[in-house]
Structures are given as structure tokens and as C-alpha cells.
Amino acid sequence: MSLKNPAALEFLQSRRSRPAKTLIAPAPTREELSPLLRAAARSPDHGKLEPWRFVVLEKGAMPRMSELTRECGVKLDKPPEDIAKARSQFDMGHLAVAVIEVQKPSEKVPAIEQTYSAGAVCLALVNAALAAGWGANWLSGWQVHDRDFCRKALGLQDNERVAGLIHIATEGTAPPERPRPDVATLTEWVSE
């Protein structure tokens, strides 16, 4: 029998990502980040394939990531404002965890379920960081969909892609609440 945890339910019903641009130093240390990674790794994983891994981008890696984003944008002929916006998450970043989806051969677990698992890890990491008192935000960007960028920046193999960049640091300012979905209009009840 499951034990009730009203505090956890209240947290989930009121959780709010913190925009990456509002995050300030300090970021979690390796010791502070480790339990958050362990919590994220408890996400649903059909077949126990572990179809994901983590690449932790510490402050010292951010300038390299920004420059590789610039190079990628120029190669892809992106407008300067798109390049600047994509670079900003690294220019202002203090720590980001790249959640890497790792597609693994499986007769029982379809590729799409492995993708879902990697997405669940991203959300679990954001929630773990928020629950631990950090500010956190799940980002991506056009650059992480470019194979050349992914190989150079993160060492990705052909069976890997970025599920998300989870920025974690201290909350600088609390964002205002935003409108939430009307769950009643999105829910269909089937009784027969």
C-alpha cells in the first residue's frame, strides 16, 4: 500500500520552473547535484534500459558551449538575433545538465518509450532541483538538434540526442504565476 504524501502533491500542484535568465550564482556543487541526479534516474524506464545519461556543464564549459552555438548558427545561416538568443542560455548559465537520450536496441521497448523515459528524466530533474530549493528550467534550442553541434559540444554518438538542457542555480527573482491549463476541458472520462 502506498503512503500518502500531501506535501509532495502540494508541491507538484504549485511547482513553477524558474526562467534560466533569472538564475544567479551559486549553482549546486557536485555533491549537491548528485542526489538530484539520483532522483531523476528513478524515472519510469520500461525494460530497465536506462535510455539516457547526463552531461553536466559546469560554469567553465559555458563559454565553449556559447562559441559552438555561434559557429553552428553561422553554418546554418541563422539570423544574428537567433544566434544571440541561443547563446544567451550559456552566456548567462551557471550549471546545466544535458539529459542525453540514448536509444538502445530492444525487442520489447519501442524507441518512442525510450524517448518518453528521457523526457521523464528531464522533468524529474527539474522537480528535484525545485524541491531542493534551487531554481531550475528545462531548455533546448535549435543548436541541440544539429548533429555536428551535438558531437562537438557533448560528444554524442549516432544513437544519442539531447532531450533537454536543465539549468540549475539560485533563484534570482520569483516569476509571476502564469495561466494554467483548464484540466476539465482536456479530460475525457470513459466508464464503459
Rank of each mutant, 00 (worst) to 15 (best):
L12W: 02
Q13V: 05
R15W: 01
R16N: 02
R16Y: 00
I24G: 00
I24Y: 00
I24W: 03
P28Q: 00
E32W: 04
L37Y: 03
A39R: 14
A40G: 11
A41P: 05
D45A: 07
K48A: 15
P51Q: 03
R53I: 05
V55A: 15
L57W: 08
E58H: 15
E58G: 09
P63Y: 11
P63A: 10
M65C: 14
L68F: 07
E71Y: 05
G73W: 15
V74I: 14
V74M: 06
V74N: 01
K75L: 13
K75A: 15
L76V: 05
D77R: 15
P79N: 07
I83V: 04
A86D: 13
R87S: 01
Q89N: 03
F90M: 04
M92A: 13
G93P: 01
H94D: 02
L95C: 10
L95P: 03
E101F: 14
P105H: 13
P110H: 07
A111M: 08
S117R: 12
S117K: 12
A118G: 15
C122Y: 10
L125C: 08
L125I: 11
V126A: 09
L130T: 12
A131F: 10
A132W: 09
G133P: 07
N137V: 10
L139I: 08
S140I: 12
G141Q: 00
R147C: 06
D148K: 12
F149T: 09
